[in-house]
Design a protein around this nucleic acid. Sequence first.
DNA 1: GATGAATGAGGCTTCATTCAT
DNA 2: TATGAATGAAGCCTCATTCAT
Lengths: 205, 205, 205, 205
Amino acid sequence: MVKDNEQTKQKLLNAALEIFTEKGYYETKVSDIVKKAGVAQGTFYLYFQTKESIFTSIIKSTNEVMIDQVERIFTEKASPLMSKEEFMQRLHETVYSCMSVYRDHKAIMYMMRVHGASQFGEAEQVVEAWNECLLGIIIKLFHKFQLFPSYNEFQFEIAARAIDGMLNETCMQYLILRDSTDEQISQISGVVTEMIYDMTLGRTQ
Amino acid sequence: MVKDNEQTKQKLLNAALEIFTEKGYYETKVSDIVKKAGVAQGTFYLYFQTKESIFTSIIKSTNEVMIDQVERIFTEKASPLMSKEEFMQRLHETVYSCMSVYRDHKAIMYMMRVHGASQFGEAEQVVEAWNECLLGIIIKLFHKFQLFPSYNEFQFEIAARAIDGMLNETCMQYLILRDSTDEQISQISGVVTEMIYDMTLGRTQ
Amino acid sequence: MVKDNEQTKQKLLNAALEIFTEKGYYETKVSDIVKKAGVAQGTFYLYFQTKESIFTSIIKSTNEVMIDQVERIFTEKASPLMSKEEFMQRLHETVYSCMSVYRDHKAIMYMMRVHGASQFGEAEQVVEAWNECLLGIIIKLFHKFQLFPSYNEFQFEIAARAIDGMLNETCMQYLILRDSTDEQISQISGVVTEMIYDMTLGRTQ
Amino acid sequence: MVKDNEQTKQKLLNAALEIFTEKGYYETKVSDIVKKAGVAQGTFYLYFQTKESIFTSIIKSTNEVMIDQVERIFTEKASPLMSKEEFMQRLHETVYSCMSVYRDHKAIMYMMRVHGASQFGEAEQVVEAWNECLLGIIIKLFHKFQLFPSYNEFQFEIAARAIDGMLNETCMQYLILRDSTDEQISQISGVVTEMIYDMTLGRTQ
DNA sequence: GATGAATGAGGCTTCATTCAT
DNA sequence: TATGAATGAAGCCTCATTCAT
């Protein structure tokens, strides 16, 4: 029955994610995964061709979800015509949502960042895709709000990457490496929101 | 002879750094290292106890140098009494110097970030030490300039990590993953400097 | 239903023969066989106990047929009283028929010779049985025609094996490894017939 | 020291030949080989890349030797101008020498014929090379002695293959599958020589 | 100190066979 | 009878480490 089929595959995926997250790709043995999943060694190979392929499979599928979620979050949240308060409110919501995405995919993010998942052809592209996704969104927003009018293409990109780095680092520290309460996440996004505002719309000028 | 001794050890360290950087810890074989160093397999174990120990040794020693350099850079560069122009000038210099440190230790940084060097007890501490180093400096500066007066301890830390993330990401992208000219590095630190200024001293109250 | 039963078994036998022939015993997987037969993995074991047993089963049953055919061919075809022309005619027919047997069981012969099917207890006996069959026939004919009167038992056997080898090799080359037309097979048996004649009845006494 | 080096390699080759001969390629485990050679599992891979490569290596090198030996044997042994007695004498010597070659490389021949060594790309070529070698020699002799004047190209080849098969089969039976004394080998080559003579120079007509 | 051959534990993967449905 | 998911033993190979010279 397909149901059973999928169940086993899912058990393997869950086990693999957990152990990859804990130990990284190389320290994870296929035997660890099957043991945790509660199936036999051979069963693994009914669902995945190689150890690498389950790894790639995990980060690829998660990544698609994350990119999708993030893109949805940033769409049509804010407009240049808003008042500062309204804008801040929206920005805060956006940052908060974005952080939730990180939290929901904690294990994957951990794997990608801490264990440096960019070692295999496909995984590398995934990490890159994720980076470019956020960057693209930020740049699009810059244009929408006509920020940094004096900046050239290159400077634009730098600014976007700086914000990307800010978000990434805070998410990493407070959502991936530590567990934070909703209350704390709200505070974190509050600080980040303010900073982003100050660097952009709120620039002294 | 000690001289010879050190020479061989250095050859191994150089070779190891190069290959670790290129392939990461796990994909690097001791046999690769000795081949590149031009010594015999057994010789490796005259200088390092294990493969892990040469790895740790490399990132530890480099890290000390980096931390030292960065701390020196941030010391006494700026003071709250300066004019904005002067302050900006100093900050720019500081960021630029900081970027130079990244560039000078490109390989190590690459290893730490891209390959996720935080897998072994000691290496993990090194990565952490580096993060804490920058963070500490930033927090100290916040205090010195009495920034974010309304922030509590937690928010303070968040803000510091955000800036840390900004710096890290831009360094990563432009100095570690790509090669940038001095001219470009100057532009990059310019943008970052402005952003930092806007988020801190230049805040719209 | 027995009918269905037999059908499935036959499908498996056909598939197995084809793949064994193509890849040899070891490179053939049970999964290949069932796939080609269009049945499930488990079904295989309803009809055959092991992979080895289907293999043995195939060559054994085929071998019986072949031995039977060959024995019939050689029976009462020629007699010492014939004229040379008549004898040659009969010998030619015999060799031709013999070659047809090889051709009809091409796959099995291929398996036995090219893949060296003599690795398992039973299979080995089959190959041997086949060899002894031909050899026996040839020796019987030698006696019937009172050939090699000066030869002792040992020499007799050598001569028989030599002819056996001749037949085998030409069959192998032209019927098993290559496809030959009826016309060509006729030529081949012509040459072989002449040679056999020259070595036996036609000997320069 | 190179001496030791070669010694270990030779131990492995000897062990491998012995076990391949006994069990065939697939039933031979690398662990069997190293056990018989008295070295560790890993040592095997210092000298051979894979199990297949030691197999190929063995039959390739032996084959070169055999081909060389056989070609030397057949060179300038007989000439069309000889008397029958002299010719028979030479032919007998030739066949005898040829049989010695088989005997000297018994194990390899066994492997090639009985286990059907033609399963891997390179091994296949080796078997073919050996077949073509003998065939070529026989055809050359046919031309030299202007045998079978009425035969066309195709018939020529058939005749050559027939003789090849005769030689092969007798060698196989008496030198590879059984052990024969020198005395016996002499008898065998005697019979074969007579047969070859009868089929060729001694043809009625 | 330097060498490099030798070691052997342990990982990944295959595949014949079983078994619950 | 038929299915096909599950099993697990066993093989090949890698590579960090040791050791005799």
